[in-house]
């Protein structure tokens, strides 16, 4: 299980398989196919791949037009230019008319690394989640990426899939049952619950391992689908464990932490601590250095759990 694969690579691999199964799948990219990994699909199905050039807004508009002509469209670029630059086109031409477009955005979060803040999108989950009818997915590893993408492809409607640049450990067995909209109980525990998404799931599992040795039992939920959110899993965590710690490679404003806190506040008031980007822009650096700088490591999660545990004793 020590294998590593980036979720963007898993996306590229899955896309080639989906292309063989569904002739209505069309893939668009904005001059980043070798980075978003749509290049594999382009090679396999050149007639169904279209480069939009460095024009993300038009890529999203074309994606809507293709979708309303019966195609299942996958449109890829970096998260910054999908959710950021093309936001209003996604909102008005894809979200509002509920187009069957899968926006698969790679290089999300600060682990983009050396490119720095202009390319490190930590706002995309917030921007996409606020669009009515948009499904928002952020897988943790290669296995869950493929399993979730298959369900995303079968869904009729707009979906935002957040993918990473960095190779990350494979967390799940091929046999793990993974369902869109249902949190994965990645580890059972009874004292506190860490609810994580993306590469923070692996960090949360490591933190739980460390804390087990200190006598703190931690449940880990992989909340790969931020919308629609698995509220029941959150309510169970809030009622069965003492507190919730969220962990995301995204701003704590408008992302997983905010979504979980909203459910908890409405349904089962409980302490929620948030590990995530604290209202800051990113910067250049190596991914592992940046994870430390922005306090997004297993140790940071463990510290948050310890603090909550001490406070609640």
């Amino acid at each position: 299980m020590a294998d590593k694969i980036s979720t963007r690579q898993a996306y590229g691999n899955t896309l080639v398989k989906l292309g063989a199964e569904n002739p209505d799948i069309i893939v668009l990219d904005a001059d980043l196919s070798k980075s978003t990994m749509t290049a594999g699909f382009k090679e396999a199905y050149p007639d169904r791949f279209f480069n939009a050039g460095i024009a993300e807004a038009n890529m999203m508009g074309m994606a809507a037009g293709l979708a309303f002509s019966g195609k299942t469209v996958f449109a890829s670029t970096f998260a910054m230019f999908a959710a950021g630059r093309a936001y209003e086109i996604i909102r008005n031409s894809i979200g509002y008319p509920h187009a069957n477009v899968k926006i698969c955005a790679t290089h999300a979060g600060i682990t983009v690394g050396e490119d720095g803040a202009s390319h490190q999108c930590v706002e995309d989950l917030a921007l996409m989640s606020v669009i009515p009818g948009m499904t928002v997915v952020h897988p943790a590893d290669g296995v869950s990426t493929e399993k979730l993408l298959r369900q995303v492809a079968a869904l009729d409607g707009p979906v935002y899939v957040r993918l990473g640049r960095l190779a990350v450990p494979v967390v799940y067995d091929e046999g793990t049952g993974i369902t869109l909209g249902k949190a994965i109980l990645a580890r059972e525990g009874s004292d506190h619950t860490v609810i994580a998404c993306g590469l923070m799931v692996n960090e949360a599992l490591q933190a739980a391992e460390t804390l087990e040795k200190e006598g703190i039992s931690v449940r880990v939920l992989d909340m790969h689908t931020l919308k629609p959110l698995d509220e029941e899993a959150i309510v169970r965590a809030a009622t069965e464990t003492k507190s919730i710690i969220t962990a995301e490679e995204h701003s704590v404003i408008g992302g997983l932490g905010a979504a979980v806190a909203s459910v908890v506040a409405r349904r089962c008031p409980t302490k929620v601590s948030m590990v995530g980007v604290q209202d800051r822009f990113g910067q250049s650096g190596k991914p592992e250095e940046l994870k430390k700088e922005y306090q997004l490591t297993a140790e940071d999660i463990a510290d948050a759990v310890r603090a909550a545990d001490a406070e609640m004793k």
Partner: peptide, 11 residues
């Protein structure tokens, strides 16, 4: 017009 381009492309 952007969506129209997508529709024409689908054709």
């Amino acid at each position: 017009i952007s969506a129209a381009v997508g529709m024409a492309l689908a054709n």
